[in-house]
Each structure stands twice: as structure tokens, then as C-alpha cells.
Design a protein around this nucleic acid. Structure first.
Length: 677
DNA sequence: ATTAGGG
DNA sequence: CCCTAAT
């Protein structure tokens, strides 16, 4: 697969500089249709595009590179070609994940630049989701909104035909009080009419005022190619004609409807689930009553609007951007400050959106109308989705115990190709509902456990650990040894996690080797998907649970769970905010959703990061990927930041310092704090 | 209960 | 990561 990225570069003015990065992902391979074009734009002040500096581009590149396997190649002048020959990149993500990826990339970029940000998603210019991922004003430290982390992005519900605009607003509170607002715009176009690559609005749109720098030239170039590719993705609403009562549909029909609604296949066979999904998808709401849902209204409405939108859509990028800028710049941030609740945010936005509409009234109407019937439809929060799918998944558990054994061996998470369903599609990322033994697969994103049931589950099962660590002699044969701790370790929610149907608490039959294999596999998946998903909400998959002998002879679980990049980012950000040492604080805030990762873990990780950052500095650029460490390489920018923070907080140990000042004095940007020396 | 450090 | 000591 190939990815084209256009990076626009222009002015050098620091304050006025913004970077717009367009990441188009034209898909040459037929097997994968990627309808998504990412556009990242950095806007300053009144919504002017500001060209990125070389430095910025490189940094962004770094950030992006690590997770997405995209490689930037600076082309002539302003265009940068980004190619990715990493095939593995493709199959792993559904289109939805692509979007998540974009978000993730954004997140990392944001992180790099600094601190907190708010995420807003605009669909055809209409704000459908607004969330604060993290917000904290230095000034209001203390009453930090605990908030957040409820990322609420169910991209699956976004209609592929719409262009999705992600907007990240960063409240960059640099070392001190000045809070500057930077807008990062992620624009994701789902190219609907492939045939009409015509006005695919990939190029930078500008505010109506247009006073700003010219749109991104590079983007325009990349755009056409990408647009031609994604025909297969548009949802087929023709299938949704007429009045349809979901209740009467067969699974097959539901599948068809599902596809028509979301433009993609589903392998889920559960009718309830399907109905709910479809209902939600059509109504763009999670509050729809399934049983009474009648597609007709929504459908028709939606369809019409879609047409309208898509038509208008094509030619009007500027407006949307403009609108966006207005919204954001118009002082939203003011309001946002201190607002921690998602709902509040959204309210605010919706109010705001209206004002914006003046710009491009028609364009925004669609969803508004859709939502008008109901009070205000908001996207289901991630948590909600999880809950839903969790309960859904439980519904699957109709199947008896026969699968007990397999559930023990099957990876809890894995990539399941679905070519058999639709060759063109990407494989769905799914996870086995092994816990329930149902073997039912559900979209990966949709079922995220927050607790850490696995180990307890195993405890319940009197799980036999041998075979897991076939490598080490450490692994004690634990035939009848079950961790004493585990028994008391069982928490309510974890028990709850056991399928309602309940399944026999029998020892699992383990096949040596298999387990390890699988866990590696799933670990991989985690690393890949994690980055995208995890950054918005922590994905808790409990893998790699090993048991190791304890001094006392007991067995103790050892979860060696590699830190994901996003976790690292969160940690670093947390440290930057609360300072190293306030681990419990950081834990509570930044890792609220991370049941694992105790404050001690954070501390340890930080220690490691510190070490790494100073160790790696001398080499500077060189070895970034060179290491074959089993763990993921930590992007240089992050390490840099770690070091900065460390220096800032005077927590650089002498020996490390020696290393540091070895070559040259480090370039701490904001070390006003480090008044020592 | 949290944190710092050593293993 | 785990464990412990110190707070």
C-alpha cells in the first residue's frame, strides 16, 4: 500500500507557522480500499494555515512514523511522499481504525507540542462529537477535570459518505501561564463518489476570509489519486429503502442492512446486536429503541440529506474549515476551560455550531435535522459502547460449554481476516469472546474491558499455567498450585465478566507452546491497535499473564505488559503536569482507565524513560529503530521531552548528567525551573 | 496509602 | 516487575 503525504511548507514565522500535513492513503491494491484521506492542518489564531517548519515536519514525521509505519520521503519543494511498504499496516485496521489512527497520530503530535487538548469531531462541518481528552489549565491546577478520558469516538457510526473532520484543539500551557490555543485539524475524507474525484475537497480549505496563507498545494496533488480508489466504501443506501422493521429481518438481512448502513460488513450474527447497531447507526444515536425502530424515517431522511451533503460537500471545503476555525477560535476554549464533562462540552458545541452554520447553512443541516427529533443526539461514549457490546457479547453466550477448551487456547484478541466475507475488505479486528466460551467475535474496538479479569478468571478456573512460559525454568509447575492471592483478588466486576450463562469452572487443558504463541500474537495486535485505540481510552486486554514462583513458594502473576507508546505519552504528559513523584496523581488522572499500571509502575517506567532518554541522547538521531529491543522503541521526541522534564525538575541524577553534558549542554527549552547551577 | 530505590 | 523500607 502506498501512502502519499503532502507536507506543506511555507513561512517560517514561528508564531504564524502552522503545519499542514496531508496524509492521503491511496490504495493501489485492490484488496484494500481505503477511503480515508487524512489531513492534518495546524491553524493559528484566526484560522490561518501555517506552514510547518522543517523541524516540525520532522518531528511530526517521527511521531507518525512509529505507529503507522508510514515513511516520509521529502519530495521536491513542498510535497513529501510518504510510502509505506509495510503491508502489515494495512490488514490490521478497519477503516474505522484508520480514523482512529489519524486521531492517534494527532494525539502524538499534539503531545509533542505540548499538553492538553480537546478533541472535536466534525462531520460535514457539523459537530457531532466533542470531547476533552485532557484538559487542564495550569492556572486551575488542582481542580483539574478528572474527566476526560472518555473519548467517545465511535467512528463506526460515522457515515462513510461524510467527510469527517477531526479537530484537535490544544491548549498548550507551556511552562507557565500563557495558554495558547493551537488548532490541529484532522480532516478525514471519506470519498464517497469515487467517480467524482472532481472536487474532492482534500486540499486545504481556508476560512472564507481567505486571508490566510494559501491552501496546501501538496494536498491537492495527492488527493486525486486517493479519491479514485474508494468506491467500494460508500454505503449503499438503496438497500435501505422503504420501511423496514428490523425486528422482522433475518440475520442475513440484517447483515445487508448493516452493510448498507455502515458500508462495511459485519460478522456478528447476533440479531439483537445487529439491530442495535443498525439502529444506532441510522439514527446516529445510541438511544434508539431497537424494537420500535423504524428505519424508514431515518433512512429517508438520512439519505436525502446525504445526497445534499455530498453534493455540496464537494465544493465547499473552505467553509467547513472556516466554520471550524470560527468555532474554535471564537473563544470556545474559554468556555472549555474548566469544563470537564463531555456532555457539557457537547452542549456547548452544539450551541456553537449553530452560530457557525451561518456560514454554510445547508451543509450542516443534515445531522441537525436528524438529531432534532430527539433532544440532541450525541455519539455514544466509548464507555457506553463498551458496555453495550459487552452486554451484547454476553448475549452471544448462548453456546454451551463445548468451547471451553478452545477458549483457553484461543487468543483473546486477534486479527481475523474476513476475506471470505468480502475479499475487498480489510480484515476485521476482532476479539474472541473467549471468556464466555462462545467464540463469538465482536469488533475489537467495541469490547474493551476495564477491569483486569483475566488473571482472576484464571484463578477462578484454577488455570494451569504450565506451558505458558515454556521457555523459562522459572515457571513452576503449578498443577495444583493456584495462587493464593488470586482468590482474594477477585473483584466484583471481574466476576461479572464471567458470562451470565456461567460456565463450568473447570481446569483448562493447556497445550504447551500454544499459549505462548497466541499471546505473542495478541500482544502484537495490541501494539498495533493499541496505539490507535489506546490513546483515547485505554484498551485493557489482559495478555501475557505469566506466573512466576515467589520466594515463599507461592505463585505470583507477572504481567509483563509492554508499555505502549500511548501509555508512555500519557505518562510523560502526566509528569510534565504534575511533576515526577506524584505518581498517584498521575495514575488517577492520566491512567484512570488503566487498571493495570499502578503508580509504582508509572514510577518505574519513568525511571526507565529517564534512563533511556539520557542514554540515547548522545547518539541523538542515530539509533532510533536500530535497537531490536523487544520493547517498542520510544520516539526521540518523547525521549527529548522526558529529558527536558527531568532537567526541568532537577531530577537528573548526577551520573546521568555526566552523560548529558558530555557532548554539549542540552538544549532545554523551558528550564526556567531549573534554577540550579 | 504513597513513594523511593534496590533487585 | 517485584519487594521493601521509609514516610
Amino acid at each position: 500500500m502506498e501512502t502519499v503525504v503532502a507536507v506543506e511548507e511555507g513561512g517560517r514565522n514561528k508564531e504564524e507557522s502552522a503545519s499542514a500535513i496531508v496524509i492521503a492513503r491511496p490504495d493501489s491494491s485492490k484488496r484494500i480500499a481505503d477511503p480515508v484521506v487524512y489531513k492534518l492542518a495546524r491553524v493559528v489564531g484566526d484560522g490561518i494555515y501555517i506552514p510547518a517548519t522543517d523541524d516540525e515536519v520532522m518531528k511530526a514525521e517521527d511521531l507518525i512514523d512509529h505507529k503507522s509505519s508510514l515513511h516520509f520521503v521529502l519530495g521536491n519543494s513542498q510535497a513529501a511522499v510518504c510510502t509505506s511498504n509495510d503491508d502489515t499496516f494495512v490488514p490490521e485496521f478497519t477503516p474505522i481504525d484508520c480514523e482512529l489512527e489519524a486521531l492517534y497520530i494527532g494525539f502524538r503530535i499534539l503531545f509533542f507540542f505540548g499538553s492538553t487538548f480537546m478533541l472535536m469531531i466534525l462531520l460535514n462541518g457539523k459537530k457531532i462529537i466533542a470531547d476533552i481528552l485532557k484538559f487542564e489549565d495550569l492556572n486551575t491546577q488542582g481542580e483539574i477535570s478528572d474527566a476526560v478520558v472518555d473519548t467517545t469516538v465511535d467512528l463506526g457510526k460515522l457515515n462513510p459518505r461524510f467527510e469527517v473532520l477531526f479537530c484537535l484543539i490544544i491548549m498548550q500551557a507551556s511552562a507557565h501561564l500563557e495558554v495558547q490555543v493551537i488548532l490541529y485539524l484532522f480532516r478525514i475524507y471519506k470519498l464517497q463518489e469515487v467517480t467524482q474525484s472532481e472536487s474532492t475537497p482534500v486540499d486545504g480549505d481556508q476560512s472564507g476570509d481567505r486571508k490566510q496563507a494559501d491552501p496546501l498545494p501538496g494536498s491537492a496533488a495527492s488527493e486525486p489519486s486517493s479519491s479514485t480508489i474508494y468506491a467500494s466504501w460508500k454505503p449503499d443506501f438503496s438497500k435501505l429503502k422503504g420501511e423496514i422493521c428490523l425486528d422482522n429481518l433475518s440475520v442475513k438481512d440484517l447483515h445487508a442492512t448493516f452493510k448498507a448502513t455502515f458500508g462495511r460488513e459485519t460478522s456478528v450474527k447476533d440479531k439483537q446486536w445487529l439491530k442495535r447497531r443498525i439502529s444506532m447507526g441510522l439514527s446516529n444515536s445510541c438511544d434508539v429503541s431497537i424494537t420500535t425502530f423504524n428505519i424508514e424515517n431515518n433512512q429517508l431522511q438520512k439519505k436525502d440529506k446525504l445526497e445534499d451533503c455530498s453534493n455540496e460537500d464537494e465544493n465547499r471545503d473552505k467553509d467547513s474549515f472556516n466554520g471550524l476555525e470560527e468555532q474554535n477560535v471564537s473563544g470556545d476554549h474559554k468556555v472549555l476551560v474548566g469544563q470537564s464533562q463531555t456532555v457539557q462540552m457537547e452542549d456547548h458545541f452544539s450551541g456553537n455550531s449553530k452560530s457557525v452554520q451561518s456560514d454554510a447553512p445547508k451543509r450542516h443541516i443534515a445531522f441537525e435535522d436528524d438529531n432534532q427529533g430527539n433532544k440532541r443526539v450525541r455519539k455514544p461514549t466509548r464507555r457506553y459502547i463498551e458496555e453495550v457490546s459487552e452486554s451484547d457479547s454476553r448475549e452471544y453466550t448462548g453456546r454451551p460449554v463445548s468451547s471451553v477448551r478452545s477458549s483457553g487456547n484461543v487468543p483473546r484478541t486477534r486479527i481475523r481476516p474476513i476475506y471470505n466475507i468480502q475479499p475487498i475488505r480489510r480484515p476485521l479486528v476482532t476479539r474472541q469472546d473467549s471468556l464466555g466460551g462462545s467464540g463469538v467475535e465482536i469488533p475489537y474496538v467495541s469490547r474493551i474491558r476495564r477491569g483486569r479479569p483475566r488473571e482472576n478468571f484464571m484463578a477462578l478456573m484454577k488455570f494451569q499455567p504450565y506451558g505458558m512460559g515454556m521457555t523459562t525454568g522459572l515457571v513452576k509447575k503449578a498443577h495444583d498450585a493456584h495462587d493464593p492471592e488470586s482468590d482474594i483478588d477477585i473483584e466484583n466486576h471481574e466476576v461479572k465478566d464471567t458470562p451470565a450463562t456461567g460456565w463450568p469452572l473447570q481446569p483448562l487443558i493447556k497445550e504447551p507452546g500454544e499459549n505462548e504463541q497466541y499471546s505473542e500474537q495478541s500482544a502484537d495486535l495490541n501494539n498495533n491497535s493499541d496505539g490507535h485505540v489506546d490513546s483515547y481510552a485505554d484498551v485493557d486486554s489482559d495478555e501475557n499473564i505469566l506466573t512466576v514462583p515467589t520466594a515463599k513458594g507461592g505463585m505470583r502473576r507477572k504481567h509483563h505488559r509492554p508499555w505502549t507508546l500511548s501509555e508512555v505519552v500519557k505518562l510523560v504528559e502526566g509528569v510534565s503536569r504534575y511533576g515526577a513523584g506524584r505518581w498517584s496523581e498521575i495514575k488517577r488522572i492520566a491512567f484512570a482507565t488503566c487498571s493495570h499500571r499502578t503508580s509504582v509502575d508509572l514510577k518505574d517506567k519513568w525511571r526507565n524513560l529517564l534512563r533511556a532518554s539520557f542514554a540515547q541522547l548522545p547518539a541523538e538521531k542515530g539509533a532510533q529503530n536500530s535497537k531490536k529491543h523487544s520493547s517498542i522503541p520510544i520516539p526521540a521526541p518523547i525521549l527529548l521531552r522526558v529529558r527536558e522534564l527531568a532537567e526541568m525538575q532537577s531530577q537528573v541524577s548526577p551520573d546521568l548528567k555526566a552523560v548529558k553534558f558530555d557532548g554539549h549542554s542540552g538544549r532545554n527549552v523551558n528550564d526556567m525551573k531549573s534554577g540550579f547551577l
